[in-house]
């Protein structure tokens, strides 16, 4: 129990008129990078919002770091990067981060630390409105990293980034995980799957596979994550009864810390 950062039981979420997530169970270990992959509209953002505690849920429970998701003590222990860069366009990068740091209760020096980590030192005094999409995204990521939260929930953090920057970011994620931070990272880019410790494949509001990168390739007999994912979706579509749950080995579930 103590090893799990996130535990969801029978989670149900309604958005608008439809039930987006219907009875989802999930266990996420601490100190690892968990990739949340799935097609557009599969419910990744909805699941992340439920973990952060900003989503009204219709049933079930979500526990985060052994507390009810969204409870007051968790607000400084969980960092959330929304899918759209939620920053103030009419403030400079530094002014944005300074404000969020004060709200988070992080020391002022933390602003410089996250600026450096996200490679934004050169843009620190630019108005957020004048940034490119990828740069604005990184400001949003930097804000989520303020105060070094134990759990980082990152909704498509690498979208719109060039391969070099993307690799840099995954380096950062790996370092954070090595220090004991748990990262739940959603992505569209399948080759990013190989950089995660664990993978959750989501489709139509359900976790259709809960596995590791190696296990994913082995069980599907494919060479790339992209192919493997397509294979699993095919299998999942074959019939409602054939929904696959690739269970990872026990030692993987309880593994702490990074791989290196």
């Amino acid at each position: 129990m103590m090893n799990n950062a996130i535990v969801a039981r029978g989670l149900r979420v309604r958005r608008g008129r439809s039930t987006v997530i219907d009875g989802l169970d999930l266990e996420v270990p601490r100190g690892a990078i968990i990739g949340l992959l799935g097609p557009s509209g599969s419910g990744k953002t909805t699941l992340m919002r439920a973990v952060v505690g900003v989503q009204i849920i219709a049933g079930g429970s979500v526990m985060v770091l052994d507390r009810k998701a969204g409870s007051a003590p968790l607000r400084r222990r969980v960092g959330y990067m929304t899918q759209a860069a939620s920053i103030y366009e009419d403030l400079s990068v530094r002014a944005n981060l300074r404000y969020f740091a004060r709200v988070q209760g992080a020391p002022p020096a933390d602003v410089d630390r996250v600026l450096e980590r996200t490679d934004l030192v050169g843009q620190a005094d630019r108005l957020a409105r004048t940034l490119s999409g990828g740069q604005a995204n990184r400001v949003s990521l930097a804000a989520a990293m303020l105060g070094s939260p134990e759990l980082l929930v990152l909704d498509e953090p690498t979208v719109g980034l060039d391969p070099v920057l993307r690799a840099d970011l995954w380096e950062i994620f790996r370092r954070l995980a090595d220090d004991g931070t748990t990262l739940l990272v959603s992505s569209h880019v399948m080759d990013e799957a190989t950089r995660c410790d664990r993978l959750l494949l989501m489709r139509e509001g359900a976790i259709i596979a809960d596995t590791t990168p190696d296990e994913l390739l082995r069980s599907t007999g494919t060479a790339s994550a992209e192919e493997a994912f397509l294979r699993i979706i095919e299998r999942d579509s074959a019939g409602p009864g054939s929904r696959t749950r690739t269970k990872p080995a026990r030692h993987l579930l309880s593994r702490r810390g990074g791989r290196r």
């Binding site: 505690g53 900003v54 929304t82 860069a85 939620s86 103030y88 988070q104 804000a143």
Partner: peptide, 13 residues
């Protein structure tokens, strides 16, 4: 609309 309120309310504000 911009999501900053959602961010703030997920923080200790």
């Amino acid at each position: 609309r911009s999501g900053t309120l959602e961010r703030l309310l997920s923080m200790p504000l």
